[in-house]
């Protein structure tokens, strides 16, 4: 991966927007014409008495990047977590329907679901007691894969996919927390990819990183969508504009608008969306 990220991103961004996607006109069904990987219908989420999401219906098109934007506390992260039932870890419950390949996620064993729908968190969280290699291998190894050859192969492939291989290939035995913050976050992405998920959820994956690391992560997201379906929550609207094909705007637990990213950032249909994107509130 090149180091002059700013440049490569600006080029890529133009390419991104010059390639029109099918079915981009329909506002609330961004993936019309595209295959939907996941889909939420009348989704409501609760944490205790807090009603975090209200009647959200949103489809996640396969092999595309869906960005979720909105002010703090608008339910972005909650929506993301409902997709692989990580909301339950924080004690949340949901009503309505969330499906993966047409099947209700609530009927899945959460363990199986989370292997298919992986997650990258806001703060890089490599396992502190494991080496770089072991961090990437953790998902496979702890699920019973001990074939050394296969582990080595997977670790290299995932570190390459995460654009980290060249930087750490000589120090795979070093601690997962000995590398820089940006590298740690890419390590976490590699770790997520190692269990071969179909969907990758990213909860503000670059919000704690410097611009160069951020650029690397964004580049990475762009390259991953060939093989994965990606949903990314971000506070950074430029980031949403750069990496995503579709953008959904959440406000106060409700989905306000969703559409093709280019359209959302140029001619949004709702006033609230426009106000938020132009920085008039939030």
């Amino acid at each position: 991966m090149p180091n002059d990220d700013a440049l490569s991103i600006s080029i890529r961004t133009t390419m991104d927007h010059s390639a029109p996607l099918p079915g981009a006109q329909v506002a609330l069904r961004p993936g019309a014409g595209l295959q939907n990987k996941m889909s939420a219908t009348d989704l409501n989420a609760f944490f205790g008495k807090t009603h975090a999401l209200t009647n959200v219906s949103l489809e996640v098109p396969a092999n595309r990047v869906l960005a979720i934007i909105g002010p703090s506390g608008c339910g972005k992260s909650t929506f993301l977590r409902c997709l692989n039932r990580m909301h339950e870890v924080a004690g949340g419950t949901l009503t309505g329907s969330v499906t993966l390949d047409g099947e209700e996620v609530l009927t899945y064993d959460p363990v199986v679901l989370r292997r298919r729908v992986g997650m990258v968190f806001q703060k890089a969280n490599p396992f502190p007691t494991m080496s770089i290699f072991d961090n990437v291998a953790a998902g496979l190894r702890l699920n019973g894969v001990h074939d050394r050859h296969r582990l080595r192969e997977t670790v290299e492939r995932c570190l390459r996919q995460a654009a980290l291989w060249d930087e750490v290939k000589d120090s795979l035995d070093k601690s997962g927390i000995s590398i820089s913050g940006g590298q740690q976050q890419r390590l976490c992405i590699a770790r997520t990819l190692a269990v071969d998920p179909e969907v990758v959820l990213m909860d503000e994956p670059a919000s704690a990183l410097d611009p160069i690391s951020t650029a690397k992560i964004e580049e990475l997201i762009y390259s991953l969508k060939a093989n994965y379906t990606i949903v990314i929550v971000t506070h950074n609207m430029q980031q949403a504009a750069r990496v995503s094909d579709f953008t959904a705007f959440f406000y106060l637990g409700e989905l306000i608008e969703v559409g093709e990213t280019k359209k959302m950032f140029t001619t949004p249909e709702k006033k609230q969306t426009e106000d938020y994107i132009t920085g008039r509130f939030g």
């Binding site: 992986g118 997650m119 968190f121 396992f127 976490c188 770790r191 269990v195």
Partner: peptide
């Protein structure tokens, strides 16, 4: 042990007991 390690383990599709034994316990050892 930070909650984020627990979440990382669960998000990798590890059962809770495995997350506890293989990730949380070593960190708290």
């Amino acid at each position: 042990v930070p909650h984020s390690y627990r979440e990382a383990g669960l998000a990798l599709g590890l059962p809770q007991w495995k997350t506890t034994v293989r990730i949380i316990l070593p960190a708290a050892l």
